[in-house]
Computed example of a mutant assay.
Amino acid sequence: MTASPVLDEPITQHATMGGDTQSLTEQVALGIFIAVPFLALLAAIPIAWGGWLGWSDLLIMGAMYWFTGHGITVGFHRLFTHKSFKPNRFVKNALAVAGSMAVQGPLVRWVADHRKHHKFSDRDGDPHSPWKYGTNLRALWKGFWHAHMMWLFDSEQTVQRKYAPDLLKDRDLIRISRHFWAFVLLSMLLPAALGGLITWSWQGALTAFFWGSLVRVALLHHVTWSINSICHTIGDRPFVSRDKSANVWWLAIPSMGESWHNLHHADPTCARHGVQRGQLDTSARLIWLLEKAGWVKEVRWPVAERIQAKLVSAQPVSS
């Protein structure tokens, strides 16, 4: 397998179309890409009730959700942010493209934000803590929406050279991150193309665009953002962590295992987040399959003794 083109020194300050300050144009574009899919999500039930939902729409939406969602969870998060395993070049680039097609921002910016979140989790400096404004009900409600999505509009961006210098040494990842706009177009247009080809009709293309592009993007957006908001507000905390990260079981399937968030903050580089019995984690299963195929190596699987030591119940009781 050809080695990844990694440079000895960083070649750029950042790998996005913008810099470390978000422009008004970027904020407007961001607002559009949040608002339009969300409006489609609100209209989904009446449109489905009206008969504008076919088997091909569900198939395309499910496939796109699975592909782009795991691009975020396995690629952007467990690989590029936390280095939970080492992939070959093809898998590395495929995961970078899949995550970019989730329409959650350029790769390097996403990783820089998330690494900063872990450094300051639920403390001053955390880009998206729901506890930012305090602990009373009004402050927490404001903080919840900040953590869920409003933090995305902060004009001051995370410094990429500081928080993602390793990614800035990789020509493949810089190229993919800088061409984020192209993968957004691909992500939005591919479902329509598939729907048109499957049904051989303009109506099939239109409904596939509605469900496979707009509704799918909105669902994945809000599920991903719920890890920042819901999973730092409510849930179970069986493991010791220095923040308020928690497990929320009913988000496990749509989040592809990311909502087992307490263990993740207790052991961030672990490739599997759902480590207890019955905790579904499809992202970990995909990494396992890639490892079996010989496409990834050095996977940081959970170690029983390490996990046991992190349980709250295993901590010594102070006198």
Rank of each mutant, 00 (worst) to 15 (best):
Q308E: 15
D154Q: 10
L7F: 09
L79A: 08
H179M: 11
A43M: 05
N93A: 14
F153G: 02
P5F: 12
A147F: 01
S84A: 15
K169I: 06
F67C: 13
L58V: 14
V6Q: 14
L79H: 14
D126K: 02
Y133L: 10
D8L: 10
L263D: 04
V215K: 06
V248F: 05
A208F: 00
H232P: 03
A182E: 10
H77Q: 04
W66F: 15
I307S: 08
W250T: 08
A182S: 13
H221M: 13
I253T: 12
A284M: 12
F90Y: 14
W110M: 01
P5M: 09
D122E: 09
V74P: 03
V6P: 03
E9Q: 14
Q308Y: 00
R123H: 13
K310D: 00
S201K: 07
T282I: 14
E305H: 01
K297A: 13
W200E: 14
W49H: 05
S245H: 00
A102V: 07
G69A: 13
L289F: 11
L189G: 11
R237P: 00
F180E: 01
W249T: 06
L206N: 01
D170L: 08
T158K: 01
A102R: 10
W295S: 00
T25R: 09
A218I: 04
H273G: 03
G195H: 03
R138F: 08
S187P: 09
L53K: 02
Q308C: 00
R300V: 10
R115T: 06
A193Q: 11
D166Q: 10
W288T: 09
A208L: 00
F85V: 13
V6T: 15
Q104V: 12
M1A: 13
R216S: 07
A271N: 09
E156W: 04
T158C: 02
F33G: 06
L140G: 03
V97I: 15
Q22A: 02
E156C: 02
A139D: 14
E26R: 01
G75E: 08
V299L: 07
M1W: 11
V299H: 06
N262G: 05
S23I: 04
Q13A: 14
H179W: 12
L137T: 12
W66D: 11
S121I: 05
S100D: 09
P316D: 07
H222V: 01
D20A: 11
F76E: 02
T25I: 12
I287H: 07
Y65K: 10
D113A: 04
G75I: 07
A266K: 03
P10I: 15
K244Y: 05
V97M: 13
M149N: 01
V248C: 04
F38R: 02
G235S: 06
Q13R: 11
F76S: 07
I230W: 02
V184G: 11
L185Q: 13
S84G: 14
W141S: 12
L286A: 04
L311V: 04
W200C: 06
D166H: 08
W211D: 00
G19H: 05
V6S: 10
P130H: 01
T21A: 06
P5S: 12
R272Y: 09
W202S: 12
F180A: 01
D8H: 11
G278T: 09
N262R: 03
L42V: 08
D124L: 07
F120V: 04
S255Y: 02
M61F: 08
I227C: 02
R161V: 06
A164S: 14
K244A: 07
